[in-house]
């Protein structure tokens, strides 16, 4: 099947920053998340897809056709910008309607579509308000409804939950996922938030330093980072052992002895209690690495640790990479 959106050997340069070459395809009805640290080139990639930037080399294909020469308005792409870019002089309804208006859609159809989206996104009560009178969550929903109104072939989401507080973010994330699923929207989504990317997407691509370091089904990438770089970005602790790099996710460390394994000796440098359990930082005795340990339970009095106390960690699962992999971070 022809992908809805495809990058072929795409490169882009802005000052000292260089993106690519990037090759990536987004199939019909799937949600692909590009995750990566700040400055990795995620937003640039979306802007290239939308035609707001031009690639240095390579091509953007829409439904199999080269779109390099197509201006943004003819690409049938919906874009939710990081700052939302709601038109401050138009009401919520007028913002949503704008894409239909410029396409000369008849007024009755426009009104129907706005009503439909307002119902879907719970915006019926605020359609007459200017963006300045909307809450952060409402603005977010208006921006997504506006991008979806013209029924784009692909929706580009640039950190769409960037300005929502954590409580509303969880709620909105589930809502967004439901809407995208129900409408079978094809989405290319970028974020530096691993949870957001993992929750929304069918597939992820990890973009580090302008290059895609790994891509594939979400579960597989999260569980099996292909390089130590990706592992580090995904929050794994990484350290050298002989001719290899080792990586362990903080949640796979344990303080409980594993038979036949001497464990990793270290010293507790800090610890604290979180809603999910206990967070401990341990400085490895042989080396400079500090490990982050996430226990999914609170420690008992007998297990209590204090700063400066020697301890041992056992890893339930350790990934190993050849030493040729350059260290980072």
């Amino acid at each position: 099947m022809t992908p809805v959106l495809e990058f072929r050997g795409l490169t882009y340069r802005a000052g000292d920053f260089r993106l690519g070459p990037v090759s990536l395809a987004v199939e019909e009805g799937t949600v692909v998340s590009i995750i990566g640290p700040n400055g990795a080139g995620k937003t640039s990639l979306l802007r290239l897809a939308a035609g707001l930037e031009r690639p240095e080399e390579g091509h953007v294909l829409l439904r199999g056709s080269e779109a390099d020469r197509l201006p943004p308005e003819r690409r049938e792409i919906g874009f939710v910008f990081q700052d939302l870019a709601l038109f401050p002089h138009l009401t919520a309804a007028q913002n949503i309607e704008y894409g239909l208006w410029v396409r000369k859609v008849p007024p009755d159809q426009r009104a129907r579509r706005v009503e439909e989206l307002a119902t879907d996104f719970g915006l019926a009560s605020c359609l007459d308000r200017l963006p300045s009178a909307l809450s952060g969550g409402e603005m977010q929903r208006v921006a997504i409804a506006r991008a979806l109104a013209p029924d784009p072939a692909v929706l580009l989401l640039d950190e769409p939950l960037h300005s929502i507080d954590p409580e509303n973010r969880r709620h909105f994330l589930t809502e967004l996922k439901r809407i995208l699923r129900v409408n079978r929207v094809t989405v290319l989504h970028v974020t530096h938030d691993l949870d957001e990317g993992a929750f929304l997407s069918d597939e992820v691509a990890v973009l580090i330093g302008g290059r895609i370091a790994q891509q594939g089904p979400t579960e597989r990438v999260l569980q099996n980072p292909a390089t130590v770089e990706v592992a580090r970005f995904l929050g794994y602790n990484a350290w050298q052992e002989g001719s290899e790099w080792c990586a362990t996710h903080p949640s796979t460390f344990t303080l409980e002895r594993v038979d036949g394994d001497p464990g990793i000796p270290g010293v507790v440098t800090s610890m604290g209690t979180t809603m999910r359990g206990t967070l401990i930082e341990v400085k490895r005795a042989e080396g400079n690495e500090t490990f982050r340990v996430e226990l999914d339970r609170h420690l008992t009095e007998a297990e209590a640790l204090s700063t400066g106390q020697p301890t041992r960690l056992w890893a339930r699962r350790t990934l190993r990479f050849p030493r040729s992999e350059p260290p980072s971070g």
């Binding site: 802007r47 943004p72 308005e73 910008f81 704008y98």
Partner: peptide
């Protein structure tokens, strides 16, 4: 914000429309 004109363009407005609207 430059994203405003970008938003108008991706919503289907030509360069001139993005400017005038």
């Amino acid at each position: 914000p430059p994203s405003l004109a970008g938003a108008a363009r991706t919503l289907g407005a030509s360069r001139f429309r993005a400017f005038s609207d």
